[in-house]
Structure formats: C-alpha cells, structure tokens
C-alpha cells in the first residue's frame, strides 16, 4: 500500500467489468464490452422484461376463430386421440346419423394428419365438406392452420355467398338460421394437441378399449384439457381386458369435471347419447362467447371451494354454550 495516501500499490480490477485493462501497459479500454461501446451510467448488457406467454400468438388467433365460428353459427369440436382410436370412423358414423336425425344441421370437417388426404376423402364420401390439413413434420394443428382451412371450407363460402345478396352486406353479427357443427380431427397424438387452442367449443378425447385403461394417467394433460371422453369400440369389450370403471376413475382423477360416454361407432351403440351431447346447447345464445361460460364454471368451482373451506372452518370452531 502507498504510505503517502493509502492507495493500493497495485490497482485492483476496474469497478466496471466492461473496462478492459491492458496487461502490459495498464491502458484502459472502455469499449471492450460485448457491445463495443461505452455509455456512461449504463451497463453494456441490459435486461428486457417480457413475461409473455409463448402460446399467446396462437391464442389470439384461436380467439378470432372462436368469434368467427360464433358469427357463422358454427359450433366447433376438437377431436383428439392417439392414432387408431377410430376418430374418422366415428366421424363418418356421426355424420350419417346426424343427417337422418337433424337434416337441418350443416356439417363440416377439418382433418389433420401429417400426410395424405385419406381421411378427408372418407369424410367427403359421406357428402359433408372436408378440408385436409397436412402438417408435414408437425405433430398437432394450431389455430392459424384452422383459420386457413375454415376460410376454404365450402360451408364458409356458402355463408359468404348468402351474405352478398342485395341489402344483406357481409356482416358478422347476425345469426344464421341453420346451425353448423364443425369437427376438427386433430393429428393422432395424445401429447401436443392438448396445448394448442384452436378456437373450439370443447376438446373431445377419444379412447378405444383396445388401448390401455391407464391412458388418462399416462397422458394427463390431454384428459385434463378435454371436456368429454368417449370410450370407443365398446363392442370389443368381451374380447379385451379393459376395466371400464377403472378407466373412468383415472380420467376423473386428472379431470374431476370430465364427462364420459361409451359407444361403438361400428354397431351404433351409444350413438344417441353422443348426438344428444353434440346438440345439447344449440339453444344457447349463438353469440355468447364460450369463454364467458368457462369463466362462470371456474367462478362456480371457486365459490364451491370457498364454501367448503368456510364449512370446515365452522366445524373446527368450538361450539358455544
């Protein structure tokens, strides 16, 4: 240490870590930081706080889809399952059954697969309009893909054509007389499609009894995201070891509110209840956004929980004489 002023004989490292000191000459270089520039009072690196949801961009398009569907009187369901659960067979059977029961309901399908248009061809053979989306290397549908496909559906074009009648300019704020059911058959995959909102009213998870009854526990995100679980191929139950009650219990464990239907698309068993489910709320106000009812459900759940908490608190209080 210097005996005159007390300074350190060997200068310590500069306080600013961005300043470089030449080892031989002691020269200082203030522009040696990563940005190669020195701004007094500012560290070279700076922080940007974002706190932004990565799926936010998808969710914005999903909300637009939801509004677009509502304005066209379209109720959309997102059908999710592993490959081979019988989604397309169920859809073909559903379309045939709905044509008989409710010929006034318009039907359309958006098909998602990595490759081929086999599924859309099967749907088009029933007479319902269908658009195939090939995701290429993708493992799920996203909201922009569905927006693009919806704009190309005949159904959509027909509605717009009707809008172009005289004194009937294109308006998105009046209900159409005929309700429309849009089925979106997602890529067969029980993982990724759980994360992407497409603008649907509800996700329907299809599980066939030739798969394991423990799938709801193995793929909990999907069964938590679904409003309805369909146990398909129940006509095969005598030939497979599949515990229906255990499967239902597993599904309710990851999603206490999940609805469950058992059916066979091949024999038609249980199809009536499925059609009832699909048509159950066509009398709902067509413009009421779905998320409003979702928010109400969430609020009811929250109030019920608070009530349970209050009751527990009261029972814990010692009784007053």
């Amino acid at each position: 240490m210097c005996v005159v002023c007390g300074c350190s004989h060997t200068p310590a490292s500069p306080s600013d870590p961005n300043v470089a000191v030449h080892p031989a000459t002691g020269d200082l270089h203030f522009g040696a930081g990563e940005a190669r520039v020195s701004v007094p009072g500012m560290s070279q690196a700076r922080a940007i706080k974002l706190e932004t949801d990565v799926l936010g961009a998808n969710n914005v398009v999903a909300a637009q889809n939801r509004a677009h569907f509502a304005s066209h009187g379209v109720t959309a369901y997102n059908l999710v399952s592993s490959p081979g659960s019988g989604k397309t067979t169920l859809l073909c059977a559903t379309i045939e059954a709905l044509k008989k029961r409710r010929p006034d309901v318009a039907l359309a399908v958006i098909e998602g697969d990595q490759q081929t248009s086999f599924d859309a061809d099967r749907i088009r053979a029933t007479g319902a309009p269908a658009i195939q989306i090939n995701t290429g290397k993708g493992c799920h549908l996203d909201a922009p893909m569905v927006a693009e496909a919806f704009s190309r559906l005949d159904l959509h074009a027909a509605h717009h054509h009707a809008h172009e009648e005289p004194h009937h300019g294109h308006s998105h704020d009046h209900p159409h007389a005929a309700p429309t059911l849009l089925f979106i058959e997602n890529v067969g995959n029980l993982v990724c499609p759980a994360l992407w909102d497409l603008g649907e009213k509800a996700k329907v998870a299809i599980l066939s009894v030739t798969e394991g009854e423990d799938k709801p526990l193995k793929y909990p995100d999907m069964f938590a995201a679904a409003r309805l679980m369909i146990l398909n191929k129940v006509d095969l139950l005598p030939h497979v070891s599949f515990d229906v009650e255990r499967c239902k219990a597993y599904a309710r464990r990851v999603n206490p509110g999940i609805e469950i239907l058992e059916l066979s698309a091949t024999t038609g068993q249980g199809m009536g209840a499925w059609l009832d489910w699909l048509l159950q709320d066509e009398h709902e106000h067509p413009h009421e956004p779905h998320h409003a009812t979702d928010a109400l459900h969430a609020r009811i759940a929250q109030l019920e929980a608070e009530l349970a908490q209050a009751k527990a608190h009261i029972t814990a209080q010692p009784a007053k004489a």
Partner: peptide, 20 residues
C-alpha cells in the same frame, strides 16, 4: 383427495432477456 382443479402453472412464458 384427487379432486384438484388446476388454477395456475400451465403456461410457458418468456420472462426476461439480457441483451446487448
């Protein structure tokens, strides 16, 4: 009990970046 309703923790978020 298994009757749990998830209320948070489902998001993937970008929190912060350090940039130059």
């Amino acid at each position: 009990d298994f009757g749990l309703q998830a209320t948070g923790g489902t998001e993937l978020r970008v929190m912060e970046l350090q940039v130059i």
